[in-house]
Design a protein around this nucleic acid. Structure first.
Lengths: 268, 268
DNA sequence: CGTAGTGTTGAATTGAATCAAGTGTCGTGG
DNA sequence: CCACGACACTTGATTCAATTCAACACTACG
């Protein structure tokens, strides 16, 4: 059984029980990021996830409905387009992409999901997933059955508030992407994408200037509405101008300020 | 009373004494769609809006927090980018567009909102509106203060459920737009746009085959990531092929099936 | 009834796609 | 542990869809 080695950007490589090892009952043994035995209270992402600002008792109630499933391998599906919707998922480690397959062959990537982010909200409205979601690398998730989340949200105002905020953030993010796709040049899209990934890694405590891209150039292209060739060319071009360094999927943002200039200002 | 006409962000600016100026007293008289005296119970859109499946008592509680403001004129702002977020709004009549102004001049349209639809969710996440919203024509709205909606949602499970669904639908819709912008040709975008407007009008009981576009070609272009010229050309081209009829902003969908073929299948 | 905004149409230009031909990298099984 | 095959990525030449530039027509409303 693989430990962690295959997962490059491994995030919580250890996660020594953040604040106090609390949780009387919970016999937390393994703290491997892919472990299934972690509780929300001991998860180092709990300040970025659904449990923000929950007190101990509330967090325990949330814990009770969260299912910590076996890790997924690269290429495993979390759910598929048209599947019945049952749960949303918090990414604990690894990463995912969501995509739709257009009847006319080629699929299009609709999103990437990194640790601390919530995936699966595309099924809430009509109880059927509008996308498929697939692991880009070895990954682990927390499954939160939606019906139970709704019930618990009625009892815990903070939880309801958090989930409204999380959905609101998804809406705001999607609208920003709309702007990017409808008005940015290929170069602006790539610069914006890199900056976005950077700040999402920063959010979970990873380096905002050196990171590993879990997705292929093709995935990036589909997401940004560009071809693989264009993505490749532009990464090379940005490197030649000393804005970034590219070593396969290892990226270093050398000159963030100039990247932001390319994007043109008020980007994330 | 005078002040408002200069357009600008009127609405909430005055808002007669917060909640219950109406209610209890409210002698619902006019049923004109622009009237402010309508209650959710008597609104012809209530089966498409927040109150779906609420019983009478519940609907009355919702009614109590809804503020029915004076109508807006074409060009009036409902809210502006960076405004503090206070409420979401249900469009009762007329239509709106939301947009952002890129620092580099040109704004980009992020959405259109027709009767029965909810606008303003872009402010939920960080309590600041990410977009501006402006009336495209004479319009009236129901303002729903978000804090009160949250409180009431804790008491009314159906209301909480409805609002989760509405936000989920917004997410799903935005992701579909993502696919359109990242992979459709200009022609496919226009066809998809027309079909989308068509079914949104159908939803509120209007003709899905003959309708009036409340937005300019420029708005459509910004929304779809195309130029005015391209929008104009393609509408003309679709007309020449007898797929649609165009008379300025009056549109007739003559051959919906072939329009769907253009889009390529599984579109809305 | 004039003018500013909206819409149309044509010709020239161009950014990104497509087509094509590679090289590089990784995981698997022999 | 190496070799093989499948993907992933890069780079160049060419094409094309949509933009840009430009000029003009419509219409609507103060």
């Amino acid at each position: 059984m693989p430990s962690v080695e295959s997962s490059n950007n491994s995030i919580a490589v250890d996660a020594p029980s953040e604040h106090d090892t609390h949780r009387a009952n919970a016999p937390i043994v393994k703290l491997c990021p892919h472990s299934t035995g972690v509780s929300c209270g001991s998860c180092r992402l709990n300040e970025l996830c659904l449990p923000i600002a929950l007190n101990e008792g509330e967090m325990e109630q949330l814990d009770n409905i969260v299912e910590r499933n076996r890790p997924l391998k690269k290429g495993d599906h979390l759910y598929r387009q048209h599947d019945g919707f049952k749960s949303i998922f918090a990414v604990r480690s690894g990463s995912f992409k969501s995509y739709v397959l257009s009847s006319s062959g080629a699929g299009r990537v609709t999103g990437f999901y990194l640790p601390g982010e919530i995936i699966g909200m595309d099924g809430i409205a009509d109880r059927t997933h509008a996308n498929s979601a697939i692991a880009l690398e070895h990954a682990s998730i927390c499954e939160i059955p939606f019906n139970q989340l709704e019930s618990l949200s009625l009892k815990l105002p903070v939880l309801q508030h958090n989930f409204f905020s999380i959905m609101g953030a998804e809406i705001t993010k999607d609208q920003k992407v709309h702007t990017i796709l409808s008005s940015y040049s290929a170069e602006q899209r790539i610069a914006s994408f890199l900056l976005g990934i950077s700040s999402r890694y920063a959010r979970v405590g990873l380096s905002p200037t050196r990171f590993h891209l879990p997705m292929t150039r093709g995935d990036i292209g589909e997401y940004l509405g560009l071809t693989v060739e264009t993505v490749s060319r532009l990464l090379t071009a940005l490197q030649k101008r000393d804005l970034i360094e590219v070593d396969n999927r290892e990226i270093a943002l050398v000159d963030k300020d100039r990247l932001k200039e390319i994007v043109g200002a008020d980007d994330l």
